[in-house]
Amino acid sequence: MLSADEAEQKPTETQSEAGFEDLPPLLLGTYTPKVDDKGRLALPAKLRTQLGPGLVMARGQERCIYLLPQREFRRVAVQIQRTSMGNKAAREYLRVFLSGAVEQKPDKQGRVLVPQMLRDYAHLSDDVVVIGVGTRAEIWDTAAWESYLESKEQGYSDIADDVLPGVDF
């Protein structure tokens, strides 16, 4: 039997066999928390654990807000910066992306403040949807998310073969 220290240091068989220990967290699911009067959002417990003790909020595409673990945010920012000096589109994207980015640490109740600038950008009301999208989560206004999802339903089926050519379901 392993001591507590040995058990803590040893990855689980599933993690080590699959080679997942170096991968970023996999953020999944759909959650419907509320934004309170002070602009705070209670992060869903499962996502809070996966995002870690600190996260970064940034402008996302389609008027949502990205939530990224700090490590993932830094990886993305560095990747964009590598191309930005000679690529005008990358420089412009980096300016918009980083100028709207804010580091956050959840409080003891798991809440984070969604800055007014980002709430305005994403047209957030108090009814929001938080979705897991792999290495990031996104905050959407509920009505905007429902409209987006409805508009993409047929395309989701139509493009599956193009987007997932080597994946068998």
Score class of each variant (00 low, 15 high):
residue 86 G to T: 10
residue 51 L to Y: 10
residue 74 R to L: 02
residue 60 G to C: 04
residue 34 K to I: 07
residue 81 Q to G: 12
residue 91 R to A: 13
residue 84 S to G: 10
residue 92 E to A: 13
residue 80 I to N: 09
residue 23 L to C: 09
residue 84 S to I: 11
residue 46 K to S: 05
residue 40 R to E: 02
residue 18 A to G: 06
residue 89 A to N: 12
residue 5 D to Q: 07
residue 15 Q to P: 06
residue 55 L to I: 03
residue 7 A to D: 02
residue 58 A to K: 08
residue 37 D to I: 12
residue 19 G to M: 03
residue 92 E to Y: 13
residue 104 Q to S: 06
residue 14 T to E: 02
residue 75 R to W: 12
residue 90 A to Y: 03
residue 28 L to Y: 13
residue 21 E to R: 03
residue 70 Q to P: 00
residue 19 G to L: 04
residue 10 K to R: 14
residue 28 L to T: 12
residue 26 L to E: 14
residue 47 L to E: 01
residue 93 Y to I: 14
residue 79 Q to E: 06
residue 100 G to Y: 03
residue 75 R to D: 04
residue 10 K to G: 05
residue 50 Q to D: 07
residue 39 G to F: 08
residue 56 V to N: 01
residue 94 L to K: 07
residue 27 L to D: 03
residue 71 R to E: 09
residue 52 G to P: 03
residue 23 L to D: 11
residue 17 E to T: 15
residue 75 R to K: 11
residue 66 Y to R: 08
residue 54 G to D: 01
residue 86 G to M: 08
residue 13 E to D: 04
residue 46 K to D: 03
residue 60 G to T: 04
residue 85 M to Y: 12
residue 92 E to V: 12
residue 46 K to H: 10
residue 87 N to S: 06
residue 94 L to Y: 14
residue 27 L to T: 07
residue 30 T to N: 12
residue 99 S to V: 01
residue 55 L to P: 00
residue 103 E to I: 05
residue 26 L to S: 14
residue 102 V to R: 02
residue 106 P to D: 13
residue 79 Q to I: 02
residue 5 D to A: 12
residue 56 V to E: 01
residue 107 D to A: 08
residue 6 E to L: 01
residue 19 G to E: 01
residue 76 V to F: 09
residue 36 D to C: 07
residue 8 E to C: 03
residue 98 L to P: 00
residue 20 F to M: 07
residue 40 R to Y: 05
residue 29 G to Y: 05
residue 44 P to G: 08
residue 48 R to S: 06
residue 48 R to Y: 15
residue 10 K to T: 15
residue 37 D to K: 15
residue 43 L to G: 05
residue 69 P to I: 04
residue 9 Q to G: 10
residue 26 L to Q: 14
residue 54 G to E: 03
residue 15 Q to C: 08
residue 25 P to I: 10
residue 17 E to I: 14
residue 72 E to I: 07
residue 61 Q to A: 04
residue 23 L to V: 07
residue 38 K to M: 09
residue 9 Q to C: 03
residue 67 L to C: 01
residue 50 Q to Y: 11
residue 16 S to M: 06
residue 78 V to D: 03
residue 46 K to Q: 09
residue 17 E to W: 14
residue 88 K to T: 15
residue 100 G to N: 09
residue 103 E to Q: 08
residue 38 K to F: 02
